[in-house]
Design a protein around this nucleic acid. Sequence first.
DNA 1: CGCCAACGCTGCGAAATCCGCAGGTCTCCG
DNA 2: CGGAGACCTGCGGATTTCGCAGCGTTGGCG
Lengths: 175, 175
Amino acid sequence: MHSELVASRSADPRDSREIRESRNGSSPHLDAVSLGIIEQLQEDGRRPYAAIGKAVGLSEAAVRQRVQKLLDQGVMQIVAVTDPLTVGFRRQAMVGIHVEGDVESVADALTSMSECEYVVMTAGSFDLMVEIVCEDDDHLLEVINKRIRLIPGVRSTESFVYLKLKKQTYMWGTR
Amino acid sequence: MHSELVASRSADPRDSREIRESRNGSSPHLDAVSLGIIEQLQEDGRRPYAAIGKAVGLSEAAVRQRVQKLLDQGVMQIVAVTDPLTVGFRRQAMVGIHVEGDVESVADALTSMSECEYVVMTAGSFDLMVEIVCEDDDHLLEVINKRIRLIPGVRSTESFVYLKLKKQTYMWGTR
DNA sequence: CGCCAACGCTGCGAAATCCGCAGGTCTCCG
DNA sequence: CGGAGACCTGCGGATTTCGCAGCGTTGGCG
């Protein structure tokens, strides 16, 4: 929690916009303060705005506005996460997919399936990796054989059924 | 508040404890009400307790106590999640691991590494799958070659570098 | 150069939420 | 029967959230 983000000079929040952190060069420009806010919320998604403000050096209202914007922009979401196996979804699997043709369209088809929790395009022996959450074996079998394999462009798949989730964190930057 | 004799079944929250949902047979017993609470918080991690209470049929205080317990027990956590690529972590990869000997001990070693975001034991051609979040290529290379491969029991690894995260949700049960 | 709109932060009451606690019910034992 | 434990409700007081007005800075433009 002692994030020394705010050093001497940049004590004034208004400087932060111009800092242009070297690490992020991607789409939505996130300055050090927003990163700090995200970090706070990764530790506790319900932390009060005032407490976050104290940690990053901003007023309560400013934090609230920033959080709202981050949420609206889709940069982050504040949610409850669980181990699905604990909550009653008994079968989970990671599925690697080989694609021929347009990878993106296959990815989109997978994205629209509610059982696909996580879809990512990769480099390596698979073109796509998908995490699937199901109620039971029948459900899993149906999803893989009767739905995923029928998507145009899917050449073959390989499944890795989850036996035990050992770790699941959301604390980037906190380390 | 006399005990409404036949309150249309399970309208009384106290019934829920005995229902013993058939779907979950796992460790911490989650009844239908707690599942409902989790569902609410998966939609919005900051939803007020009173609103959740109204949705699941419980008082504000009761919801608060349940949420606290779920948090304490580690059944769920309320956090901000982002696309790491947006937040400045430029290299991410899924790594499949072949293990000889005790899988659990290798899993524990991986779990203690801060770069490992997600560790799961699987059935299939890999024994373990790990998601790794890094700052850049050098960092990723170091983690894979100089740390993971040196863990006793790791026979070989295969990496899938992330090109693009297409979907990421936390809405089990909401569907 | 000066004007003005856009943006982001602060400060401040009012309203809503959170929090701790006392009290009641039900169940499970010895 | 009596008591411990689990869980819920209700209720004030403390805290937080929310909306809005005000202000300084930035950047476009005549």
